[in-house]
Design a protein around this nucleic acid. Sequence first.
DNA 1: GGTTTATGAATGAAAG
DNA 2: CTTTCATTCATAAACC
Lengths: 216, 216
Amino acid sequence: MEPRTLQLMEQQTQQQIEDGGNNQAAGTNNRWAPTPPQLRILKGLYYDKGFKYPTPEQIQEICLHLKQYGQIEDKNVFFWFQNLKARERQKLKEFRNVPVGGSLDLNFGSTSSTDDGRSIDLNFGSRVGYGVDPYSSSPFNTNTSTTSFGTTGGQSFMEQRGGDHQEIETLPLFPMHGEDIFGNMKTTSEGGSGYDGNSRISLELSLNSYKDADMA
Amino acid sequence: MEPRTLQLMEQQTQQQIEDGGNNQAAGTNNRWAPTPPQLRILKGLYYDKGFKYPTPEQIQEICLHLKQYGQIEDKNVFFWFQNLKARERQKLKEFRNVPVGGSLDLNFGSTSSTDDGRSIDLNFGSRVGYGVDPYSSSPFNTNTSTTSFGTTGGQSFMEQRGGDHQEIETLPLFPMHGEDIFGNMKTTSEGGSGYDGNSRISLELSLNSYKDADMA
DNA sequence: GGTTTATGAATGAAAG
DNA sequence: CTTTCATTCATAAACC
């Protein structure tokens, strides 16, 4: 169990009363649910085609297409893919702790295909390879390792993400002026006791290459 | 995984297990969540002041300031801004790019494969101009705050870093193929008077001080 | 009808 | 900066 100590926060009920204009009953049901045709198409994309990383453009395209089968928005498509990927990943991860005896390992291929029946699960996805120490760098580690591991798994059709620019222009980035964003003066007038917390933070953040170059 | 049962349907509280003042075991919950005051301040900076590109120094400063409202680290502030920017931008981006989806030809079933398509559907436009939460059908966001500010105040009324960051450049995006994912041509059949005529207005009530104030 | 499950939605964190 | 991963919240549908 987890001690959920919470009581005083504002409860931001995140609601999404967006009425796409074609909603069935605003207020009664504000959560999107795929219609059968929509679900079939989505699954077809995901499983049959191994289409798992739609670009924003493709998301829109899919969404547009799906609109003829019911109200839907881009974000629904987006989340659908995200969730499906995440949950499959999660399932695999659970599996890795094989309670059955000894060691073992990959054995992936448990794509559940529920209602539609046509999911074939060609698991040749695009870039798979999580599960092998995905975390190797700290948020602000001191080395921008450009050794991007091969993401090219073996896409048969095309790359789902073609463009790339990534111009890394690291600039010196000038410090600010005297006053802080809150309007206070940061004149170290804390009583001479040294200005606290800038012991580690400063250099960690700076290598993030803020793209700018300005000065007042 | 452990099925976290526990209280149901009554806890609308988001996920802020960490509250200012009394923090609990950091081992149970490792993910930072802004406390209401922190969130208010951050949003105030971002939306109300248009403060979107904090320098590392400013991040420190903000963090320092926010520490009185709960445990927080620099990287949290950093990520917060970065995520918000990214998600807001993605929204805008999808809004303006509706180019050829061009990709993949999927045809698993329905959709007559009218091969060849060159589906250029740009400009399915309905609304132009992204002043205030222009898009509700984007993957992200949707303004979760019920109590605080409105969302999105435009995208740039003031840059605190001089440079011109958000240059809206319509990326070229060379199409790869013609047909869309479904093999159809999307002929801009948006004439249907619109499923998404949503006009989500979001007025932004400006708050006066980002200093304190307890949450309700 | 209360509980469990599946899944949509949100967002912090991280990778590239 | 852009995209993806991980975790959690929320909720409707399924279950008992």
